[in-house]
C-alpha cells in the first residue's frame, strides 16, 4: 500500500510524536508498504489556527496515497477516503483546560464561539476517519467526552532495540527526562529529605528553565542531600541511559497529569525496573499498577519518600515489581507489529 503519514510539526522542537513518526515509517516499510511522511508546520496560534487547518484540509491526498495515517493534530483534519487517525492531544486550552488556570484566553463571546467552532471542526473531521486511535486512555476518554468519538487505545512503543540490559537492583533511583516544573523533579528531591534509608536519587536531563534547575540545586544544598542526590542536567546518550537503568533500584516518573505513560516509564519497564509514580500523574497510572509493576503513592514528599525506602529496604520487591513492569508491556500490546497491524487493518 502507498501510505502517507501526515503530521503537524513545529520546526526545531522535538516531541514524542516525532519519535513515533520516525519509527513508524521503517516499521510500515518492513511490513511491505511504501511510505512518505508529510510534515506540515502548525503554529497553534488561535489567531491563525482555523485558516491553517483549512489549508491542511485543502490538500488533495486521494490521488497520492491509498491510506493516510494522521498523527499530531491537526493532521486529522486532512481529507482522504481512507483516513486513520492516531490522536495524541486536543488543543487543550479549548478543551479540558478551558476552565483551568492554564487558560489565558478570555471567555468572551468571540472566543466561546471560536471554541465551539473548533470542536465542531474536530468532531466532523474525526467522524470522517476510517478509524480513530489514541495514544492513551486519558485521550480516548477526552475524545469520547468532547467529541463523542470512540477511540481504540494504541500505545506508542519505544524506538529502536527494546532488549535492555537488566542487572541487580542497585541503591539509586533513576529519574531521566527533561527537567521541568511539570515533570516535578522538585517533588522527588523533597521526598529524599523524608527517607530513612540511604537510598540515592539520580536526576538526569536537559532543562529549558534555569530558575527551576537552580531551585532544585539550592534545595539539595540546604538540606545537605548532596551525597545522596545527583543532579545531572544534560542530555544523556542512549547508551548511558541504558547503563543507568540496567543498574538502578527503580525508575521515578511523576509528571503532572501527563497524557501518556511517557517514554521514561516504558524504558524503565524494558530494563525490568519498578516504576515509582504518584496518583495524579495522568497516563502513567494506565501503565503502572500499584504493587504489581511499581508503586503509586499520594503526590506528597512524605508518601513518595516512603516508597523510595520500601524499594531500598526490599530488593526482592524491587525485582518482583520490575518483572511486573516488563510483563505489563506485553499485556498492553506495546509493540510495533501491533501498532502497524492496527493502523493498516
Amino acid at each position: 500500500m502507498k501510505i502517507g503519514v501526515i503530521s503537524s510539526m513545529v520546526p526545531h522542537i522535538d516531541g514524542g510524536y516525532r519519535m513515533f513518526v520516525n519509527q513508524l515509517v521503517p516499521e510500515l516499510e518492513r511490513a511491505g508498504h511504501v511510505v512518505e511522511v508529510v510534515w506540515l508546520p502548525f503554529s497553534s496560534d488561535p489567531k491563525t489556527m482555523l485558516s491553517e487547518m483549512l489549508g491542511f484540509r485543502m490538500m488533495n491526498l486521494d490521488d497520492i496515497f491509498d491510506l493516510v495515517i494522521c498523527c499530531r493534530p491537526p493532521a486529522h483534519v486532512v481529507k482522504h477516503r481512507r483516513k486513520v487517525v492516531w490522536f495524541i492531544h486536543h488543543e487543550r486550552v479549548f478543551y479540558d483546560l478551558w476552565d483551568s488556570e492554564h487558560n489565558t484566553i478570555p471567555k468572551s463571546a468571540y472566543w466561546k464561539g471560536f471554541r465551539a467552532q473548533l470542536m465542531r471542526a474536530d468532531t466532523k473531521c474525526l467522524r470522517e476517519a476510517h478509524a480513530v486511535f489514541s495514544n492513551s486512555q486519558v485521550v480516548a476518554d477526552r475524545l469520547m467526552a468532547f467529541n463523542a468519538i470512540a477511540a481504540e487505545v494504541l500505545y506508542p512503543p519505544l524506538a529502536g532495540d527494546v532488549q535492555f540490559d537488566s542487572n541487580a537492583h542497585g541503591a539509586e533511583l533513576a529519574f531521566v527526562c527533561r527537567i521541568e516544573e511539570h515533570k516535578r523533579q522538585h517533588l522527588a528531591v523533597k521526598a529524599m529529605s523524608f527517607t530513612k534509608s540511604p537510598v540515592r536519587l539520580r536526576i538526569a536531563g536537559r532543562s529549558q528553565n534555569p530558575n527551576y534547575l537552580e531551585s532544585l540545586q539550592s534545595f539539595v544544598e540546604l538540606n545537605r542531600l548532596r551525597d545522596r542526590i545527583t543532579l545531572d542536567h544534560r542530555w544523556i546518550s542512549e547508551g548511558e541511559k541504558r547503563h543507568l537503568l540496567a543498574n538502578a533500584l527503580g525508575v521515578v516518573y511523576i509528571p503532572v497529569d501527563d497524557d501518556s505513560y511517557g517514554y521514561p516509564t516504558l524504558e524503565g519497564a524494558c530494563a525490568e525496573r519498578p516504576i515509582v509514580t504518584v496518583s495524579d500523574a495522568g497516563g502513567v497510572g494506565e501503565f503502572v499498577e500499584d504493587g504489581i509493576s511499581g508503586l503509586i503513592t499520594a503526590p506528597t514528599p512524605e508518601a513518595l519518600g516512603e516508597a523510595f525506602d520500601r524499594l531500598w529496604d526490599d530488593r526482592m520487591l524491587a525485582a518482583k515489581l520490575g518483572e511486573g513492569a516488563l510483563r505489563r508491556i506485553n499485556e498492553l500490546s506495546i509493540r510495533w507489529d501491533h501498532v502497524v497491524a492496527r493502523l493498516t487493518a
Binding site: V10, L40, F42, T48, E52, G55
Partner: peptide, 18 residues
Amino acid sequence: DNIPAEIARFKTMRLPNV
C-alpha cells in the same frame, strides 16, 4: 486548474519558531 487553490493553501500556512 487547482493550482490557484494550491497557491492559496500555501498562503494559509504559518511557520513558527524559525
